[in-house]
Design a protein around this nucleic acid. Structure first.
Lengths: 317, 317
DNA sequence: ATGAAAGCGCTAACAG
DNA sequence: CTGTTAGCGCTTTCAT
């Protein structure tokens, strides 16, 4: 494990100063052609690769973004994180991923670790219910942005989300149009901050439309799930207890994960572009970190109702 | 964006030297109680958090591991990466994730970026077919390990995989037992190095058992897929063309992703513990990075045949 | 166009 | 037990 060559080694080898090597490496066009060539040869000879840690210390910027997710296995977060990672990479940034499992203690430890590593910004794709972690990050002067969901957060916390109120209303309207009147909401297993918003939007849509909200166990004719993963689980649960979907119960999801369009699942859902949410979040975070200002932009991305075979006309019970 | 307090600020505030602060922070129990308290108060007053970048530069270790995956959306990689991240976190390490899409150029750029960031080790969970990237990492003196697959690689590249030959033989044996004789192998979309091994193992099992290998389009009675994701796609593709699974064609996967056990999918597959593979890989990598030696351990983890409803007796054609 | 010098914030000998 | 010193490898004025 030979120590890698340093800029000093290159300078010595090429017979120039460290500053000149630095100028060559950073493509500063101040170096004369012959000198540049000598330096480039030396770099090649020694297999020199700049040390990003030293650079980060000096420049006070790591070019790394932290991504806080409840669980990267969830297809929505996976997609969002991939979009984020791609965009980050395109901009010369790395992505440090931190799963929290929506556990408050883990969450704060993970965030502390990211901050200690001096990430340039933090993309928060999900938070524990009731957590104020995003604001604490902002307090530290680090750009932070909620990507893919929204909670109450101060001015200094950006948001890139989708209009969940509108989407849930569209879902409920669709079910109402099919004659459903007993609707239930199925929460996810994780206690995510975003879950409360969806559930509230569901409750409001149901109330506004004069429908009945019942518990999932209380024989609803339609189940609105927190997301597609939960919806697919619900289909399994329902069919295990003898109900057929959509014959007896309709089920709708949220996100339109790849599997939702599979023939065996065919889930009616709301499509969101998770990769775009992730990419856009990173874009805003990088801009903020460059400008030294908080990432305070707030924007909602569009959604689209996708009708498939998991919903059908209500069956009189 | 006030600059965060440094160790010097704390030292001044507490009226001690930087080394003493450093000793307190690192819990070196060499500091007297009264001094330690003064320092701790100063730390609290100033909201001091050590700068990991400076520490990394000085200690020549970042406590960050790079994870190279073809696509983190694939449930197998997602699970493996999660297992890796958890273990890393438990050991005080961070995980920098790099997706390659199995594109050679992207792969080498991502690895170069990881190395430039001076990750302490690299967990490679998938490589482009024909890539020698792992050995190049080892050449740089950075511990590297193939997690979840295996390719030809030199001594200095560790491996934590599963016995795919055995697993594929078990899968083929199971199909043979059901009377299948025309078997096809369905590759994944990504050109992963690991794909060749599975396909080869399949081909050998088929040949050894005197069965016929046909192409997926050539009316096989059973399809062996590269992994569960591919298997589920195959079920969709087959049913779209009028075949029923398993009535007309049996399908088996690999990995036992969460969805494989869903009632609507019920995939016969081989279970591997992706999270354990990831965790173990990280464990070995950290040990290697601590010892300064390559991560040269090679071990295979067990697999388990899981019989579900996607396989049934062959139907005469 | 190039070089010398001064740190970024921290740790690790080594003195005292 | 505490302080002094000397860097880690790089960028960045500032001279020359």
């Amino acid at each position: 494990m030979a120590d890698p060559a340093t800029i000093g080694d290159v300078a010595r080898h090429a017979g120039v100063s460290k500053s000149t090597v630095s100028n060559v490496v950073r493509r500063a066009d101040v170096v004369s052609a012959p000198t540049r060539e000598r330096v480039e040869d030396a770099i090649r000879d020694l297999g020199y690769r700049p040390n990003g840690v030293a650079r980060a210390l000096r420049q006070r910027t790591t070019h790394v973004i932290g991504a806080v997710v409840p669980d990267q296995r969830n297809p929505f977060y996976a997609q969002l994180a991939l979009g984020a990672e791609r965009r980050a990479r395109d901009e010369g940034f790395g992505l440090l991923i931190a799963n929290t499992g929506c556990d408050l203690e883990t969450e704060s430890a993970q965030i502390a670790a990211l901050l200690e590593r001096r990430v340039d910004a933090v993309l928060v794709a999900g938070l524990c219910a009731g957590s104020h972690a995003a604001e604490h990050i902002a307090d530290r002067g680090v750009p932070v942005l909620l990507g893919g969901f929204r909670t109450e957060a101060g001015e200094r916390v950006g948001v890139v989300d989708v209009d969940e109120e509108g989407a849930l209303d569209a879902l409920v309207a669709h079910l109402q149009g099919l004659g459903h009147t007993r609707l239930a909401f199925a929460r996810g297993a994780l206690r995510e901050a975003g879950g409360e918003r969806r559930e509230r939007a569901f409750a409001q849509a149901v109330a506004r439309r004069g429908l009945d909200r019942v518990e999932p166990g209380d024989e609803p004719t339609a189940v609105v799930a927190h997301d597609d993963t939960v919806a697919i689980e619900q289909i399994g649960r329902l069919e295990r207890t003898g109900c057929r979907v959509p014959r007896d119960v309709s089920v709708v999801g949220f996100d339109d994960i790849p599997l939702a369009s599979h023939e065996r699942i065919a889930l009616t859902t709301v499509r969101t572009d998770a990769a775009a949410l992730g990419a856009r979040s990173v874009e805003l975070l990088i801009a903020a970190s460059r400008s030294g200002a908080p990432a305070s932009t707030r924007e909602s991305h569009p959604w689209q109702l996708v009708l498939r075979a998991s919903t059908a006309g209500a069956r009189p019970r």
